[in-house]
């Protein structure tokens, strides 16, 4: 049904109108935990973007060339998770071996996102919406960039709030959730520009 949307449109939509974090509320745990500093949230965002794009492509191939021909579609949840976990492990080992610098920036975050629900969410959405390969990759990339945008914005706000006189019961997680809610409200301003589902 959405087969009509072009890949660039999907990329744009995944970042702004259908931000996976702020409209679907997926990937919340690392969003809340690693958003104290802009620097580390950029690192985490890059890691998520990279893993999302690659696993979207990988799982697309697994789904349409393995699961569909063998009629194993009902196992896709398990298969997707296993593929994602193995891929993340492998990439972590490669980075650690060949680029210590990249490991510091990106590698240390990889274990944190193996079980990130946003990554599985992107893969499942692309299957449910019958995307083509190109659309899937665009959706993965857009989803990751959108996630990065949201976490960097949140950490920017939190860094500023470090100086603010927040009432004690709301300090920490309470205030962070309120901010996330307000951000989600403001992103609703984009909705209606592109109809995805």
């Amino acid at each position: 049904m959405e087969g009509t949307l072009g890949a660039p449109t999907i990329l744009f939509a995944a970042i702004f109108t259908n931000n996976i974090l702020l409209t679907n509320f997926l990937g919340m745990c690392s969003f809340l935990a690693i958003s104290r500093e802009i620097k580390s949230s950029i690192g985490l965002g890059m890691a998520v973007t990279f893993v999302m794009t690659c696993t979207a492509a990988l799982n697309y191939l697994v789904h349409y060339y393995l699961l569909v021909p063998l009629d194993l579609v009902h196992f896709r949840y398990i298969v997707f998770i296993v593929v994602i976990a193995a891929f993340v492990q492998l990439v972590e080992m490669l980075i650690e071996r060949f680029s210590p610098l990249l490991y510091v920036v990106l590698g240390v975050f990889l274990p944190l996102i193996t079980v990130n629900c946003a990554i599985l969410g992107v893969v499942l959405f692309m299957i449910i919406r019958n995307y083509s390969f190109l659309q899937s990759v665009a959706y993965g990339l857009g989803g990751g960039l959108g996630w990065t945008l949201a976490i960097v914005a949140l950490s920017g706000i939190r860094q500023r709030l470090a100086q603010a006189p927040i009432p004690q019961p709301l300090q920490g997680a309470g205030m962070t959730l309120i901010i996330a809610g307000l951000m989600a409200l403001s992103f609703m301003g984009f909705s209606g520009m592109i109809q995805m589902q």
Binding site: L66, L70, L72, F75, V79, V82
Partner: peptide, 9 residues
């Protein structure tokens, strides 16, 4: 067949 394919993967 399903089990086999899954275990294989």
């Amino acid at each position: 067949l399903g089990l086999l394919a899954l275990s294989g993967l």
